[in-house]
């Protein structure tokens, strides 16, 4: 084992995902502490991503194979396993998201490494890492240690995005595709993209997001009226979407959109880590939740614990009156 830190880089349309750039900030801190290098793994041909990593990673490890051109979990698992066995980094980092779920625990088991989930802080000394993780939907923090080599899954938003250092020389290393890629049991069929012209939460200036606390569709309708009066897009956290009260395209969080509006009004949202990762970059966050200990208040700028069923009509009335003025 060396002091290197390996980052699995996620890309979309040739661009590096913000959560991967955040991992690269964490990786640099850890590699500096361990006296190692930062390796960024890019699966499939993605020249744009490789160029974007110049001045950020020390080495960009690329692998090409037809099975790596789309996202096939089994193919990525085989690639990561192969790279980690060959290079034996002290720490391998993944972003908490679908790929992080598919890959991190898998490579941990198959390369006999410990794995720590939901990390918001991570430090390394000698042959050990110490992590702080959000558990129970962010209600508690777990501080833990693991021997290295180890795998860690970092919650998006925990670190700033890495910026290129003009003096850092980045080399690109083409690595061999593992033979398992020719005998996969999983096949890619199709990717579905969000429909054009539908709501684009990522570019919305104002968002009113409803959470589990709204309890039913009728209350979502009331929230929608308030959103209309505010000129905001209505959005929902996962339980609201799973209940069918709003369409999937209106979901904020891990499996929905990552948003950065000027205003994020969260109503009845508890603030599980997978929700916070999608919205904690908003300029102004206002949270309404009757549970004063709800994690959403940890990221909100303003909050209130009053009953949302009373608040929404009262706020809607004022906003409508303001529009008429």
């Amino acid at each position: 084992m060396n002091g290197d830190v390996l980052v699995y880089v996620e890309t979309r349309d040739g661009a590096v995902n913000p959560s991967s750039l955040e991992l690269l900030t964490a990786a640099r801190q850890l590699a500096d502490a361990l006296g190692g290098k930062v390796d960024a793994v890019v699966a499939g041909s993605s020249r744009g991503a490789v160029e974007a990593l110049a001045g950020i990673a020390d080495r960009v490890l690329t692998a090409t194979h037809p099975a790596l051109e789309q996202y096939i979990p089994e193919a990525r698992q085989a690639l990561l396993r192969s790279v980690i066995v060959e290079r034996n980094p002290a720490i391998a980092l993944f972003a908490y998201g679908v790929a992080g779920l598919d890959l991190a625990a898998d490579v941990a088991v198959r390369t006999d490494r410990p794995v720590i989930d939901f990390c918001t802080k991570l430090s390394a000394t000698g042959d050990e890492i110490e992590a702080t993780s959000l558990i129970y939907g962010g209600k508690l923090r777990a501080v833990s240690r693991a021997r290295t080599p180890a795998v860690a899954v970092i919650v998006p938003g925990a670190f700033p995005e890495a910026q290129p250092a003009p003096t850092r020389r980045t080399i690109t290393v083409e690595i061999a595709a593992p033979p398992q890629l020719d005998a996969l049991r999983t096949a890619f069929i199709a990717e579905t993209r969000p429909a054009e012209g539908e709501v684009d939460l990522a570019s919305a200036a104002k968002i009113l997001c409803v959470g589990r606390g709204v309890r039913d569709q009728a209350s979502v309708a009331v929230a929608r009226q308030v959103a209309d009066a505010l000129g905001a897009e209505i959005a929902g956290s996962r339980p609201v979407i799973d209940n069918g009260w709003l369409g999937k395209e209106r979901q904020v969080g891990k499996s929905g959109s990552r948003v950065k509006p000027k205003l994020y009004l969260a109503v009845g949202v508890s603030g599980a880590p997978e929700h916070l990762e999608g919205m904690s970059g908003a300029e102004l966050i206002i949270a309404i939740n009757t549970d004063a200990k709800a994690p959403i208040f940890g990221v909100a700028h303003f909050g209130a614990t009053c009953d949302l069923f009373d608040l929404l009509p009262a706020l809607g009335e004022r906003l409508e009156r303001g529009q008429e003025a």
């Binding site: 490494r113 501080v143 240690r145 693991a146 208040f297 940890g298 909050g303 209130a304 009053c306």
Partner: peptide, 22 residues
């Protein structure tokens, strides 16, 4: 391969200004 050191209750960072009242 891991050792839980302790559980903590997150300090709510004190960031939210709470609006009081009905």
């Amino acid at each position: 391969g891991t050792e839980l050191v302790r559980l903590e209750r997150p300090q709510s960072e004190g960031s939210a200004v709470m609006l009081e009242g009905d």
